[in-house]
Computed example of a mutant assay.
Amino acid sequence: MAISLSKGQTISLAKTGSSGLSKVFMGLGWDPVKKKSGGFLGKLLGGGGGDNIDLDASVILLDANKSAVDTVSFNQLKSKDGAIRHGGDNLTGEGEGDDEVIYAELTKLPTNVSHLVFTVNSFRGQTFNEVENAFCRLVDEANNEELCRYTLTDQGTHTGVIMASMTKTADGWTMTAHGKPCTGRTVKDLVQDAVSVI
Rank of each mutant, 00 (worst) to 15 (best):
M1H: 09
L5F: 04
S6K: 09
A14M: 06
A14E: 12
S18N: 09
S22I: 10
S22M: 07
K23V: 13
M26I: 14
G27H: 06
G27P: 07
L28R: 14
W30S: 10
K35I: 06
K35W: 02
K36A: 14
S37L: 01
F40H: 07
L41K: 01
L44W: 04
L44P: 06
G47N: 12
I53S: 12
A68K: 11
A68G: 01
D70G: 03
D70Q: 05
V72G: 08
Q76I: 10
Q76Y: 12
L77Q: 11
D81F: 11
G82K: 06
R85F: 15
G87H: 05
G87Q: 08
N90W: 04
G93S: 00
G93N: 02
G95A: 06
I102F: 07
E105G: 02
T107Q: 10
T119Q: 08
F123D: 09
G125W: 02
G125K: 06
F128K: 01
N129G: 02
N129A: 04
N129W: 00
E130Y: 06
E132I: 11
D140L: 03
E141Q: 14
E146Q: 15
T151L: 01
Q155H: 03
V161Y: 03
I162D: 09
M163L: 15
A164V: 05
M166L: 15
T169R: 09
D171V: 08
G172K: 01
H178T: 04
G179M: 01
P181R: 03
P181W: 01
C182H: 09
T183G: 06
G184C: 12
R185S: 15
V187S: 13
K188F: 02
D189A: 14
L190Q: 10
Q192M: 15
Q192V: 14
A194R: 05
V195K: 12
